[in-house]
């Protein structure tokens, strides 16, 4: 345990001893993790907004003129009991006309009509916004007695989900590519460190060191690079959100929305650190497996007769 502590400290000193090359590696790791992190946090904020939009999306069921208020209320209760339905609101024709009068300046025209032209309406918020689920629900609602027609305002939401799904797929490709590149960068850095210490490694092999003993400082080096890169990624992520978050929040306020930008919090902070450490050590293992065999003084592939 004591020996591991010394190796860990020694690997940190190695980084401090070479500030320029260490900074380049750490900043590369930081940028490679930081950029996808920014996209992920923006995506999370977008998704949380989308959830609120979901709640305003609904199916409008227009009832026959012959349906009475009591019958409409009973139908509302029946629909509410369906498992596919999240929320139901019955709007009588009288309430509908009052709302219409409030929201428009067309009350005089309504007086000329003589009678209320608006039907009773049932607003239904579905549980699932999946286009197929919504279509099935609309179809079942249309078939009910007393229903004249049903319409949805969900088409745009489906399109939005579609666009977001494409962006999500592109982001995954983007993140995977970045991370593979990052592992290769760390592997190269560790490979160079191994090459620079080739004499020392060969000597340690000759003195009876095990492979794991020789690997250890390089894995710790990868660990520190990864941890440093994770910290750097957190810094660039948070710094880049300062102007962005302020802009988004002031825009939201102008729409009287209580939206506040979520910068990821401590969970995201530790997740980014963890990703950095994972990628740093994985890169170190890759670099070691590539270079160690070249230095081991024991000739390989030699068959004893």
């Amino acid at each position: 345990m004591f020996s591991h502590g010394r190796e860990l400290t020694s690997a940190l000193h190695e980084i401090i001893r070479k500030p320029l090359s260490s900074f380049v590696t750490i900043s590369l790791i930081g940028i490679s993790i930081g950029l996808p992190s920014i996209f992920v946090i923006l995506g999370e904020n977008f998704l949380s907004r989308l959830d609120r939009i979901d709640q305003s999306a609904k199916i409008n069921i227009f009832l026959d003129e012959s349906v009475l208020v009591a019958e409409g209320l009973a139908l509302s209760k029946e629909i509410q009991s369906q498992p596919e339905v999240s929320m139901v609101r019955f709007i009588s024709s009288e309430e509908a006309i009052k709302e219409f009068q409030k929201q428009t300046d067309l009350s005089e025209i309504l007086f000329t009509l003589g009678q209320n032209p608006l039907p009773h309406v049932i607003e239904v918020v579905p549980v699932s916004f999946d286009s197929i689920d919504v279509a099935i629900l609309v179809s079942s609602l249309k078939d009910r007695d007393g229903v004249e027609s049903a319409a949805t305002n969900l088409k745009w939401l489906e399109r939005l989900y579609g666009v977001f799904s494409i962006i999500k797929s592109i982001s995954i490709v983007f993140v995977v590519t970045f991370f593979i590149g990052l592992i290769l960068v760390v592997a190269h850095t560790i490979g160079v460190a191994i090459q620079n210490k080739a004499d020392e490694i060969e000597l340690m092999f000759l003195l009876g060191a095990t492979k794991s003993f020789i690997r250890r400082p390089f894995i710790y080096l990868g660990f520190w690079h990864g941890l440093g890169g994770g910290l750097f990624a957190n810094i660039i992520t948070q710094v880049s959100f300062f102007p962005l978050a302020a802009g988004v929040e002031s825009l939201a306020q102008s729409y009287q929305s209580g939206f506040s930008f979520d910068r990821g919090g401590s969970e995201m902070f530790f997740l980014i650190l963890l990703i950095g450490v994972f990628l740093g050590t994985t890169g170190a293992f890759l670099g070691l497996s590539k270079k160690m065999g070249e230095i081991n003084p024991t000739r390989r592939g030699y068959s004893y007769k």
Partner: peptide, 15 residues
């Protein structure tokens, strides 16, 4: 020594 496996070489070298 000709038959010592690669993973056990370190034991010989330590002596």
């Amino acid at each position: 020594l000709a038959r010592v496996s690669e993973k056990n070489i370190y034991k010989v070298r330590r002596d």
